[in-house]
């Protein structure tokens, strides 16, 4: 049976007279990798902030992990993980301190924290580097660690906002291996990216244009529908139809 872990119905978000999200309606299925694509300024960040319980919608019905975005925002925050390229780890804390910090924020017990930290460092081959400051480790390590930390509390959903920007192509693929693994362990993955080959790795993809969802389907179905060889062509066809610059 398919259960929907995110349900969005007629989401509208306005900033003054500007409509950033214009009646968005979509569902995300439990355990899927859901790609959330769109041009700069299409309204992706606005929608993600609402789904994460950081901002109120102007109107619409939304439920995230079974909780209401108007009345149960703290519950939502406890049940999701979040990682962005910009905000990830504390540069002047060590690897171990960062893990402990995030685990504690998510309310894990002392014993649990130590256990999970050890498992995590072992998995990432970081045992010998545990006391290194984040600022001294390579970007690729940081990103893998940031992702692991974002799911250290076994959230129902993890939101990844351009998680692979700027990393080398091998690390980028290793990162996607981790995403697949998380999805196989039942975590729903909600991801944005500007790399169109990564859109192909998603179970389903939505493409936002001008505050609306212009298309939503599996990559295979989208390629067929728009008679495109790959997702890059699908994206260009949809996004290029719109020429208006958005503020």
């Amino acid at each position: 049976m398919i259960t929907n872990i995110i349900i969005v119905k007629d989401l509208v978000k306005k900033f003054g007279s500007f409509v950033a999200n214009d009646h968005l309606t979509f569902e995300v299925r439990k355990g899927e990798i859901f790609g959330f694509l769109g041009a700069n300024g299409a309204g992706k960040t606005t929608a993600i902030r609402i789904l994460c319980g950081l901002s109120f919608p102007t109107s619409g019905e939304l439920s995230v992990a079974g909780y209401n975005v108007y009345t149960q925002r703290e519950k939502i925050k406890q049940n999701i993980g979040y990682m962005s390229q910009k905000f990830s780890l504390y540069d002047d804390l060590t690897i171990f301190e960062n893990i402990r910090f995030y685990a504690a924020i998510y309310g894990l017990s002392r014993k649990d924290i130590d256990n999970r930290a050890e498992i995590l460092m072992k998995k990432l081959n970081l045992e010998d580097a545990r006391n290194k400051l984040i600022r001294d480790i390579p970007l690729g390590w940081k990103q893998k660690l940031a992702f692991s930390v974002a799911i250290i509390h076994d959230p129902k959903i993890v939101f990844l906002d351009e998680p692979t920007g700027g990393v080398d192509p091998i690390t980028r693929r290793q990162f996607w291996d981790m995403i697949y693994e998380a999805a196989r362990n039942g975590i729903t993955v909600f991801v944005t990216t500007h790399y169109m080959d990564e859109a192909e790795y998603c179970d389903r993809v939505s493409i936002m244009v001008d505050g609306r969802i212009a298309a939503l389907d599996t990559p295979v179905a989208l390629r067929e529908k728009y008679q495109a060889r790959n997702m890059n062509e699908v994206f260009l066809k949809l996004a290029r139809a719109q020429t208006k610059e958005v503020a």
């Binding site: 769109g38 041009a39 700069n40 351009e162 920007g165 700027g166 500007h194 169109m196 890059n232 994206f235 260009l236 996004a239 290029r240």
Partner: peptide, 10 residues
Amino acid sequence: TTGVDAVSRQ
């Protein structure tokens, strides 16, 4: 073009 979408990049 870092952080810029595929259309604007082109």
